[in-house]
Design a protein around this nucleic acid. Structure first.
Lengths: 191, 191, 191, 191
DNA sequence: CATGAATGAGACTTCATTCAT
DNA sequence: CATGAATGAAGTCTCATTCAT
C-alpha cells in the first residue's frame, strides 16, 4: 500500500498559503487547494477532517514556525541592545521572506475558522519576547511602559512595513530596515 | 424620495459594518446583510448592483469619512508639533470609536472585492498627511526619511494598538494614548 | 413577491413518496426529489432544513394521515364486531391504495433519519385501536391476550398481504380481503 | 487456503449483518464493513467484486441458511399439526435469535441491490412449506384458501412479532409464542 | 493476498442573484 | 420600490473503487 506521507501535509499547507497570498482566505475553495497541491479533493479529507480543521492546523503551524524564526540566534548575543535589534531584524526579515505566512496569519484572525482559544496560545509562544522587554525596562534601557504596549508598538511597525513592501512590489533594502529600526529604537529607549 | 434612499443605504452600510466586525468579511452573506438591515434581500439589489458593488461602495464611503475625521480641526492649530499630535490622536480615537470601519477597511484590502484602482485613490485622499510629514522633514523636525516610511510607521503603530484594544475588550485610556504618542514622536523626531 | 406556497410541501412529499416506492429510501437523492417535484434543488432547502428533516417531516405526516384513515367512519358503527372489521378493512384498503405511504413508513423505521423519539409517538396515535381491543377483551369477544400481541397480529397480517399484493402487481379482490379477515377474526375471537 | 477464504467471507458477512441491524442497509459504507470486520477496504474487493455483489451474496446466504433452520427436524414429526407447529416455532425462534439476518433480508427486498431474479428463487426454497400447506388443505385441516394467502398470513404474524420484540428490547417468552401460535392456528384451521 | 492511501464522481448544501407579486 | 420565494451554479464533503507497496 501507499504509505501515508506526512510530507503531503506540507504540500497542502504550501499550496494553501500561496493561494491565500494571492486571493485571500475568503476566496479559496477546497477544490482550489487540491488542484494547487496536485492531489484529489478527497485526499484533502484524509489529512484534515474539513476545511476549518485544515485552516486551523495551518494557523497553528504558521504561528509555531514563525516564532521559532523570531528567536533564532538570540541567545548567542550578550548585550540587550544587540538582542533587541536582532529580534527586530529577525521578525521583519522572516515576514518579508515568507509573506504568505504573515498574510495568512493576519487574515486568520478575522476568519470564522480560528477561535479565541487558539489565539490565546499565542501569548505563551511569545513569552521570551515579553521577558526581553521586561529585562530592558528593568535595566532602565526601555521606557517604563506596559510591556504589551511596547510589543504592540514593535509588531505594528513591522506589520505595516511588511504589507507596504509586498504590495509595492519592491524589495526592502537593508538601509530602510536600518532606518525603521532606528525609529523603533528611538521610540522605545529611555531618553 | 432621495432622502429615503440615502437613509436606506446608510442602514445597509451600518448592518454590513457590524456583521464584518463580528464575523469577518468572508463570513457574511447578502442574506445576513438584508436581515441585519431589516429589509428584503431583493431590496439590496435595488441599491447595489451586486455584492461586489456594495462592498466597494462601502469601502469608498468608509475611506472618505475616515479621512475627514483624521484631519478634523487640524487647520486651527499653528504649530507643526501640535498638528502632528492632533492628527495622531484623531486617527487613533476615530479608529477605536468606529472599530467596525477600521476593521472593514483592513479586511477589504485582502478581499476579492476591492481592486487596485480603488486602493490607488487612497494616497490621493491622504495627500494632506504626506504634506504634513514633508513639512516636518523640511523644517528639520522629523527624521530625514522617506515620507512613506514615516506614514507606514504612523499607521502601523495605530493599527496594532487599535486591534489589540478591541480584542482585549478593554478601553484605551488617555494616558496610554499619550504614552503611545510619545513613543511615536520620539521615533520620528530628529534627534 | 411569490407567496411561500405551503402546497409545495405537499408537492415535495408526493414526489418523495413516489421515488421511495420505486427505488427505496436508500436510493434517492435531493436532486432526484427536486427534479421529481419540478423545482430547483435550492427550493427544497427553503421548505426543509436538510434531507433528514425532510424525511422526518414526511414520516410524521404519513403517520398522522394514515391513522386518520384507519379510524374513518368507525364511530358510526355500533357493534364491536362491526367496528373491528371496518378497522381491518380501512387499514388494508388504505395501505394498498397508498402503498407509497405504507412502503415509506416501513423503510423509515430502519433508516438513519427517524429516531426512536419519533417512533414512540406512534403508540399515542394508535390509542383508539388499543381501546377497541381492550373493549373486545373485556367483553369476552377477543382472546384474553396482551393487547399489543393482538395488535401486532393485526398489523402483521396486513403488512405482509399489502407487500405481497404490490409486488405481485395484481389487485386485491374483496373476496381475498374477506378471506383474510376471516383468518384474522378466527385467530383473535374467543372460542 | 480455501478454509482461510471462507472464514474471511464469514467475517465480512457477520460484520455486515451487525451493521445493518444497527444502522440499516442504507447507512453503511464499505469502509464501515471493513473496519467492523477488522480488515482493509481493499480486501473486501478481493472477496467481492463490488458492494452490490457483497450484499447479493449475503442475501443468498442468509436465505439459504434461514430456510434450513425453518425445516430443521420437521421430517421426524408424523402429524400434520405437529409439523405445522414445529415449523412456526422454528421460524420465529430463528428470526428472534438471528434478528440481524431477519432484518437484513427484510431490508434487502427494498434495496437497489437485490433484483427480482434473486427474489424469484425464494419461492423455490420455500417449496416444502407450500407442500405442507397444500397437504393441510387437502386433508381438510386448513381453510380452503389460496396457499400463498396462508403463507403470507404465517410470515406476516411472525415478522411483526419479531420486529416488535427486537425494538422493545425484551425477550419473547415461550408462553407468548404459544399464544401467538394459537392465534395463528385458530386463524387457519378449518372450523 | 493484504493493505489503506488515493481517487474523483456524485452526494448534500449554500448563497448570490432573479423575478413574480 | 419592496418583497422574499425561487433559482441553480458552485462549494463542501462522502464513499465506492483503484492501485502502489
Amino acid at each position: 500500500m501507499r504509505i501515508k506521507d506526512e510530507s503531503k501535509t506540507d504540500l497542502i499547507f504550501k499550496a494553501t498559503l500561496n493561494l491565500v497570498k494571492e486571493r485571500g482566505l475568503a476566496g479559496i475553495t477546497m477544490n482550489d487547494i487540491s488542484k494547487a497541491a496536485s492531489i484529489a479533493t478527497g485526499t484533502l479529507y484524509i489529512y484534515f477532517k474539513n476545511k476549518e480543521e485544515l485552516i486551523k492546523a495551518l494557523f497553528l503551524e504558521c504561528r509555531t514556525v514563525s516564532v521559532q524564526h523570531y528567536f533564532a540566534g538570540l541567545q548567542e548575543i550578550s548585550s540587550f541592545e544587540g538582542r533587541m535589534k536582532r529580534l527586530f531584524i529577525n521578525i521583519i526579515t522572516y515576514k518579508i521572506a515568507f509573506f504568505e505566512v504573515s498574510a495568512f496569519l493576519e487574515q486568520s484572525y478575522h476568519s470564522p475558522f480560528v477561535c479565541i482559544a487558539d489565539l490565546k496560545k499565542k501569548e505563551k509562544a511569545l513569552k521570551p519576547l515579553f521577558a526581553l522587554v521586561k529585562e530592558g525596562i528593568e535595566a532602565g534601557k526601555l521606557k517604563n511602559a506596559d510591556e504589551e504596549l511596547i510589543i504592540s508598538y514593535l509588531f505594528g511597525i513591522i506589520h505595516e512595513m511588511v504589507k507596504k513592501t509586498y504590495f509595492s512590489g519592491k524589495k526592502l533594502s537593508p538601509e530602510t530596515i536600518e532606518q525603521l529600526y532606528d525609529m523603533f529604537w528611538d521610540g522605545v529607549r529611555r531618553q
